[in-house]
Simulated assay, not measured.
Amino acid sequence: MPVCLLVGAGPGVGEAIARRFTSGGYSVGLISRDAAKLEAMAGRLSEADATVAWHAADAGDAVALEGALMALTDSLGPCDTLIYNAAVLKPATVLELETDRIEAELSVNLLGAHRAAKRVAPGMVERGRGAILFTGGGLALEPFPEWTSLALGKAALRSLSLSFYKELAPQGVHVSVIAICGIVAPGGPFDPERIAAEYWRLATVPGGIEDREVILQPTGTDPFYNDPERRYAETSRLPEHAR
């Protein structure tokens, strides 16, 4: 049975991804900080006879994250798909923000992603297959001052993902960064189940270089979702989103 490890297994997108992969025949390992919420999520997923394991760890804590990844691969088997969905979502403008806080939040928004990918990539290369999927965001493409720290993390994560893609794709391992450019809510254009279906596609039938970066911005959705009052409309140049 193939194995999916999900770092940042929270409600919404995280649980929808876990549900999609268990329904597709994967064993799923869940990692996040809150043990009680992880246990409850694992219980809901296991009601459908899924094989689910979990381990509580802060993605920004190198020792804890390494330990969680090791424990889950020991119990479930080698990782076939890694999904890094962890992030610190705390607003502060570029002038308000303390540099020490940026450093602390990058431990989750960027460094944990690097550690997790480095942990599973060698086994994937050895087997000649696998997928590593990073949850990005529109802030990597056009930052806004209130979300400076998260924007820095997402921009760096985008670069990291593209570097991993260039190194690993020739060895049979697909890497994608998925920018979710909107507010996740059931029934809307950014419905968690629809987003999870895209992660499933990228893990199982990726389209090569065309899928090294996937930008989820459905037609008609607001590209200024990070600036709803349009305070920065005259100083922003929003990209042409692909999806």
Rank of each mutant, 00 (worst) to 15 (best):
E193V: 14
W200G: 10
A56S: 15
G77A: 11
T148Y: 01
H241N: 03
G8W: 02
S32D: 14
I183D: 08
A62C: 03
T204Y: 02
H55V: 01
H241I: 01
L38N: 08
A197T: 09
V7M: 04
A64N: 08
A104H: 10
P170Q: 14
V120R: 04
L72V: 05
F164R: 00
E15H: 07
G123Y: 01
P143W: 00
S32L: 00
W200T: 11
V108S: 04
E210D: 15
R237I: 13
L106C: 07
R212P: 02
Y26N: 05
V120C: 14
E15D: 12
I178Y: 04
I195F: 07
S149I: 00
G207C: 05
A155G: 15
V175D: 08
A40F: 03
R158S: 10
Q171S: 15
V13K: 10
L110G: 06
A169K: 13
G220Q: 13
R33E: 01
I178R: 03
F134L: 14
A48W: 02
P2R: 07
L72F: 09
F224E: 10
E142C: 12
G67R: 01
E229D: 13
P2T: 04
E103I: 14
F224H: 15
P218T: 14
I31S: 00
E142A: 14
P2A: 06
A155T: 12
G43V: 03
Y84N: 10
K90V: 15
R237D: 12
V3D: 05
A68T: 01
N226Q: 13
V94N: 07
E105W: 06
P186N: 09
R230Y: 13
I102Q: 03
F134V: 08
A57H: 04
E213D: 07
C4E: 13
K166C: 07
R20S: 15
T93N: 11
S161L: 02
E142V: 01
I180P: 12
L30I: 04
F164G: 02
V175T: 12
P206Y: 12
A196Y: 03
G130R: 09
I178V: 15
L152Q: 10
A104N: 09
K154S: 07
